[in-house]
Design a protein around this nucleic acid. Structure first.
Lengths: 158, 158
DNA sequence: TACTATTCCTACTAAGTTGATAGGAGTTTT
DNA sequence: AAAACTCCTATCAACTTAGTAGGAATAGTA
């Protein structure tokens, strides 16, 4: 299971990526109300994402957050790793957070193989799902104000 | 990450499945010393596995544990579900432990799709990896006493 | 019937993680 | 100087994890 914090992080990033003007800085308070995330908690999440080189931030009265790189270049893998850490199900098969499984001899480990397979399949999916993909999914489902395409889509629904 | 407890469970089951005589009941103390698992903790794990319909147990002085069904019919999925619960990374995409993700509208959820894919790929692997597969891997690596094949293999190594 | 060896059960505990909140310091615009 | 942000440290309650303690129930054996 990914943590609640990680879900918040993904939703916050989608919110930022969904901005019409990619250069507009988005305030944490905006995201908090729009995405229903506790404000103070969100601040710590955004800080983690900034430390993780996904977000750029500006302080002061016109401050806020922007993506450090295009949404299409931010992978789900990256986000999860920053917030939750390892993606693998065993420490000894983790690529980015390797640790030896105490009490088991790795050279004769019986279960390593399966979990390497799981890791590879999982990364195959998460690496190829960018923030842009998630955002597009989001925009399709929840039309934005002033978005002509989604407005027509909405009216044609009835 | 799967829990330490779950790794213990898998190793304990492999140990039981590796017995020459499939009808022999294996005592928890045997497993504990062979697999280096804290004895009392192991007892609670074996009880979980029995409640989960994987093991059969006998009390008394000749008591112990046996597999309730052939090792080839016990999947890794089953074991993990009993010990750790859900395999999916989101509550709302779990097949056996479904729960709604509080605070997100499932009909418009942006991230559900990816995690459904991850779940399916993961289950694809774990469902097709049986305890027999894991045991065979184990026996290949750690030759048993009195096993002629592995003794010759051992001596030819030098 | 004792005795012994095992599983089984309830309860407890220490340490770590998760999901936050509090209070204020630093920074930038007006 | 004031206002409005981000940023930082510390703290907290609830929960989970990894295990331990002590003994009851059960079954074979002398």
């Amino acid at each position: 299971m990914i943590s609640h914090k990680c879900k918040y992080a993904i939703r916050a990033l989608i919110d930022i990526a969904a901005q019409h003007d990619p250069n507009k800085t988005v305030m944490s308070s905006e995201i908090a109300t729009r995405q229903q995330i506790p404000k103070k908690f969100l601040e710590t999440i955004l800080r983690d994402l900034r430390n993780g080189r996904i977000l750029h931030s500006r302080r002061g009265s016109t401050g806020g957050y922007t993506l450090l790189k295009p949404a299409s270049e931010i992978t789900t893998t990256e986000i999860i790793r920053i917030i939750d850490g390892p993606i693998a199900l065993l420490p000894c098969v983790s690529l980015n957070y390797y640790a030896s499984c105490e009490g088991c001899d790795e050279s004769t480990c019986q279960i390593k193989g399966v979990f390497e397979q799981v890791r590879d399949k999982t990364l195959g999916i998460l690496n190829h799902t960018s923030l842009a993909d998630l955002r597009d999914q989001y925009l399709k489902n929840t039309p934005q104000v002033g978005d002509k395409k989604s407005e027509s889509a909405r009216s044609s629904q009835k």
